[in-house]
Design a protein around this nucleic acid. Structure first.
Lengths: 116, 116
DNA sequence: TATACGTATGAACAGTCGTTCATATGTTCA
DNA sequence: TGAACATATGAACGACTGTTCATACGTATA
């Protein structure tokens, strides 16, 4: 079992985060809920899986997940705001890739729970 | 880094889960999105934090998270359906507790991402 | 510069979600 | 059994979300 204090506190600067017997501060809870909201949609999850191990332009992502270019672009915006994907321009194309390994770990923890 | 195949496949029986170059099957993606939806609400997150390390009745949970008895009861129903909490009757009271350690790991992975 | 292509964005719509309110269900004790 | 308490549930409402459609923006090439 992990150290629970490490969950409640993010770093040393969060020394006043403890409310309601170990409850993180309100703002942190909102940020946490917002992060999980990003993972709470199949289109976005598909996009993340499509980007595992490779970089793709928007059109190829749309093809991989079976959604329209516009829908994917809207969702990529959400993923960008959550710092889950990065992008670089390549001429007319914009190439997206996963931002860091948190995507892997969060998705795999979810899968672990579903499959018991 | 973890084995990505362990994320895509839940167990040996999922041998046909691979679609779209490593994409899990549709039903699994829906279940995964549904799980993250449960974590995508501050009231439910507060309930989970309140239950960390202790068992509480509905009224005490409501007090701990600052929500009405009815609102908490509705959300406990969602948490039950997601197999994130357990409950036992104790006279007039119903005592809730966390179902397993997945709650800790999923929340902590989310916190890790938020705090970079 | 004009055209074509890839991507981003805003408005609008249907569907979903979380709360409140009222009330039902279930339990204990007199 | 009847009253009091704890919890669960259904309806209804406002707020939010993801898609589509139309269109704007940005880039490369002729």
């Amino acid at each position: 079992m992990e150290d629970i204090q490490a969950i409640v506190h993010c770093d040393a600067d969060e020394s006043e985060a403890v409310l309601l017997e170990g409850m993180p501060e309100e703002e942190l809870l909102y940020d946490l809920a917002d992060l999980f909201k990003v993972f709470a949609d199949t289109t976005r999850i598909k996009v993340l899986y499509a980007l595992m191990g490779k970089s793709l332009c928007v059109a190829h992502i749309a093809q991989a997940v079976g959604a329209s270019q516009s829908a994917v672009s809207h969702q990529l915006r959400v993923l960008k705001q959550a710092h889950l994907v990065r992008f670089t321009r390549d001429g007319k194309n914009v190439i997206y890739s996963l931002a860091d390994d948190h995507v892997y770990t969060i998705l795999s923890q979810g899968m672990n729970h579903i499959c018991e």
